[in-house]
Amino acid sequence: SYGGAVITEAATGNPNVEALVYVAAFMPDEGEVLGQLAARFPGSDLNPALVKVPFTNADGTTGTDLYLSPDRFHAVAAADLPVEAASVAAATQRPLSASAFTDTATSAAWRTIPSWVAVATNDKAIAPDLERFQAKRAGSHTIEIDASHVAMISHPDPVADLIRDAARAQSSRPALAETGLNTSGIVGAAAAGGMLIAGAVLISVARKRPAIPTA
């Protein structure tokens, strides 16, 4: 989700980061604003499901935290999890600052670092067509999973395999990733009782040592 924007900025210029893995995530380019990027393709039900809660910043100004409405959480974020698991996740979710959708990206690490992408084909938080568009322009190794926004929880096996693939590929330090599309519709997986909506994994591969994926 928003974690994709975080690693896209944080990995830029970091020589220890050799691969980026995005799972149902934003992949902004330099100069893009997430709110505008999200609006480029239909299919997201996120905006009308958000609850806005004001808070006071350290400098005294007012900011806005965004939560998914508990009664919309299951349908928008976790439709392929049991209702009970989605309810726990809705109650324990962490907010996202509204400024995340208005800030401008200042760099795009995927332009110089190979990337792997999992498109969640039933995502109602980030439009699947946006996920496909981002992966295509980044030249990412891409899989598609028949999953909701929380593909990493409802379908952990293909997500874990994608992370391993990225780590293995980068252990030999290849050139920039070639574009590829491999679809997988996998049914049935363990669902977690609690979760944080996060759609990005950053892999840091230590040089001259086995690749170790870290989230």
Rank of each mutant, 00 (worst) to 15 (best):
A147I: 04
G139P: 14
V83H: 12
A177W: 00
V53C: 06
N16A: 14
D146T: 14
A58R: 14
D29V: 03
R209A: 15
H141I: 14
A166Q: 03
A105N: 15
R137T: 12
V33N: 05
I143N: 09
R137H: 12
A125N: 05
A77G: 15
E18Q: 05
I163S: 08
V119D: 08
A167W: 00
I113T: 06
L181I: 05
F55Q: 10
L202H: 01
E9K: 07
E84P: 08
A39V: 06
Q93Y: 03
T179M: 08
V23P: 02
Q134R: 11
L46P: 00
A120F: 00
H141D: 13
F41R: 12
I153N: 08
A86M: 10
L20F: 02
I7Q: 09
V88R: 05
A49K: 06
T112L: 04
P28W: 07
V6S: 09
A125I: 05
P128I: 11
T12S: 10
I113A: 02
A39E: 13
V51A: 14
T56E: 15
A167S: 14
A151M: 06
V205F: 01
T92Y: 02
G188C: 08
S172E: 09
A166F: 02
T12R: 07
H155I: 05
Q36G: 06
K208M: 10
A91L: 06
F26L: 14
A125E: 06
R94G: 09
E178W: 01
A79L: 14
T104H: 03
L46G: 05
A175V: 02
E178L: 08
T8I: 04
A127L: 07
V21W: 01
I212S: 12
T121N: 12
P82N: 09
S107V: 08
D161C: 04
K52C: 04
A89L: 03
A135L: 09
G139D: 10
